[in-house]
Amino acid sequence: MKKILAGLLVVIAALYFFINKQDSNTLVIYSALEQYRNDDLKAHLAEKFPGLNVQIMYMPTAKVAAKVQTEKESSDADIVLGIETGYMEKMKDALADVSEYSHLDYIEGMLPEHGKYLIWESYGGGFAVNTEILEKYGIDEPKTYEDLLKPEFKNRISIQNPKSSSTGYNFYLNLRNVWGEDKALDYFDKLNENVKQYSESGSGPVKLLIQGECAVGTALTYQVVTEINNGNPLKMIYPESGSPYSLDGVSIVKGKNDKQDVKDVFTYLVNDYLVYDKDHYNPGKILEGQESKMKNYPEDIKYADMTGIDDLELRDELLGKWKY
């Protein structure tokens, strides 16, 4: 009986969404951004477009790509946001040409020539440490990847699982590029001895650092700086090979670009809200002359070799060799 009731509730919810989606005043955005950023965006859109019912649905980047690539014009989504560029490339045939929407001055070479999406953000990372934990146990700050193999870090490290986290994959790919595949895999086998937890999400290690459960974690710069500004005893350290990074994008699902509401919202997103988002959430540089307004955000970050970041076949190959 419970299974039947649960099934009915799912059907009712789906019908409710379908009926609302038929309303010309409903616009759907599939977003892979953090929930707090989605909430803020929704509030801004409600103020800017009071006559629209904008629904922002959080969905992991790979799932968005799979759905849109399969459903194409029949997708519930009108706009996709915060999707890694590798997956944007994978579903580009299901996306509209949006090259004429942006009036911003992107860094040369930042935008794809085919025009099927615009870059939303650049996010890079490094080692985040809890300075109080290091001081408590008399542990020196790690400066290199090899430092994380030291016995004093046993059960004091958290990293992302690259199979579920793009942040984790960024570190994995960078080490493969710098050291070669065999040495990188051997390194992670050794590092496993010191890892307390593999996080499913990119922000997982930061949460453990704040809770004092770990001393070191791989993390995104903007997430760590946000927590530093919130008063948490964290510090960002970059390995010698540089900050692993990737890009994500924003676009309109093909066939939805003939709707005026979609055009209006997208134009606002990629010209006005994008700048607001860089000022308040992720200052990673994608625009000419872009200056960070986020307190404590580092300048002149050296970025790592991310050759192959958009190669999904390479991603599948490397993830197939990941043991943890």
Rank of each mutant, 00 (worst) to 15 (best):
S102R: 12
K263I: 13
T218I: 05
S102C: 12
S201L: 12
E288W: 06
K259D: 15
K143C: 13
D97Q: 08
S31F: 07
F266W: 09
Y16C: 15
G202A: 09
N229D: 15
G115V: 12
P142Y: 06
V206N: 13
N296D: 07
D182K: 12
F266N: 01
Y187A: 09
T226R: 07
K190S: 11
I301Q: 03
S24V: 11
E227P: 05
T218V: 09
L9D: 08
I252D: 07
S241R: 07
K21G: 02
D277N: 04
V265C: 11
V265R: 09
S203F: 05
T307H: 03
D300R: 10
Y238R: 02
E135M: 06
Y222E: 12
H280P: 04
Y187G: 13
T85H: 02
G284M: 00
V270R: 11
N194M: 06
K302I: 07
N130M: 02
N230K: 08
L220R: 04
L15D: 13
L5W: 10
A65P: 13
K321S: 10
S246K: 03
N174H: 06
E240S: 11
L185Y: 14
S251R: 02
L208E: 10
T144Y: 01
K136F: 01
M236G: 10
D248M: 10
P162K: 05
I301K: 00
Y238K: 02
H114R: 07
R315Y: 02
M306S: 02
A6E: 10
D23H: 05
Y276H: 09
V195K: 10
G249Q: 08
K3S: 15
N194L: 14
L319N: 11
K42A: 14
G125N: 07
